[in-house]
Design a protein around this nucleic acid. Structure first.
Lengths: 168, 168
DNA sequence: TTCAGTGCAAACGTTTTGCACACAT
DNA sequence: ATGTGTGCAAAACGTTTGCACTGAA
């Protein structure tokens, strides 16, 4: 494979931190970076990465994903059909994500959760973290829906889209 | 097995809606109800239910769990170590959960998420739902931690406890 | 030279499904 | 009588791991 030139090394640092950046890992990280603004599963990432380098094994992608997550290069969004969804996330500050249930588009959302939420028996609890994902339709898919056109390729899955936006 | 008396039928309605309530399903629903205030996996539910009726198959528990979730008798909280966590949830109104990462205690929390959160590229999005889980320590486990005693049986798992409460 | 990363294949744990049978309706 | 629920076992699924090897440091 082509020698890893210094520019690539910088990118590898960003994606993998202290971990070593092989040619395969660079390909995987670039593929994830190219998917910015769109959620992807490990399987999908592997498929895309293999378009560049067909020799990449699935285990390698799983290991690279774990390393990129540890380095903060990508984030877990949740699960869909039993598989974990990730997104490339350049933002380092605390925030959450809005996921389009029709096309997997992802957008950053400011955190609306107060440090100590109220209600019920949560009073004695000490909150250390939280996880929030918003579901809905992105601008394009919302427009499609308005036009009464069936949404495009629909990766929608009931399991992870709780219908609970405006109800009491 | 014992005939299903009318009182049990009422309970079955609550747990399974239109679905049929067999003796096994009633045992499973009662077990889930007894675990109120504590999150459980399907495997754990099966183990507890089998203490009452050893003949209950795992597949039956999975099918009962799906039915109870469809009827709104239990709710998915998230995943831990690849397995889905559920909790019995009597409240029918929209709310979220606080999960103790040390002992699996669960408490209801009022929803702090506005209908249309702001920030980033989420402007074109139409929100249809969201999912929020808070992580932390319940009163008892927090007290343990204060006493510098290692928390009890620790079902904690890194994967689902994003450390992100107060950070910018 | 050393040790992290790789590919393959096998293993793992959770969840689903096909089947014949039992039972609630 | 009808069709849903049951138990078992096998399969499917995403994911992890052991191994010998390659290649980055």
């Amino acid at each position: 494979m082509a020698a890893v030139e210094p520019r690539a090394r910088d990118f590898g640092r960003i994606a993998y931190g202290a971990g070593r950046a092989s040619a395969q890992r660079l390909t995987i990280a670039r593929t994830a970076d190219a998917a910015r603004g769109r959620a992807f599963s490990v399987e999908e990432l592997a498929t895309s990465a293999r378009a560049q380098d067909p020799g990449i094994g699935l285990a390698t992608v799983y290991r690279a994903v774990a390393a990129m997550e540890a380095a903060g290069f990508i984030e877990q969004l949740g699960t869909r059909d039993g598989a974990v969804l990730y997104a490339r996330c350049p933002s380092t500050s605390h925030h959450h994500h809005m996921l389009c249930t029709a096309c997997n588009a992802v957008a950053d959302v400011a955190c609306p959760v107060p440090e100590q939420p109220s209600g019920g028996g949560a009073d004695g609890f000490r909150v250390t973290g939280h996880r929030l994902v918003l579901y809905g339709l992105c601008g394009a898919c919302g427009a499609d829906a308005d036009a009464l056109v069936p949404t495009r390729e629909s990766p929608r899955s009931e399991s992870d889209c709780c219908g609970s936006a405006g109800d009491a």
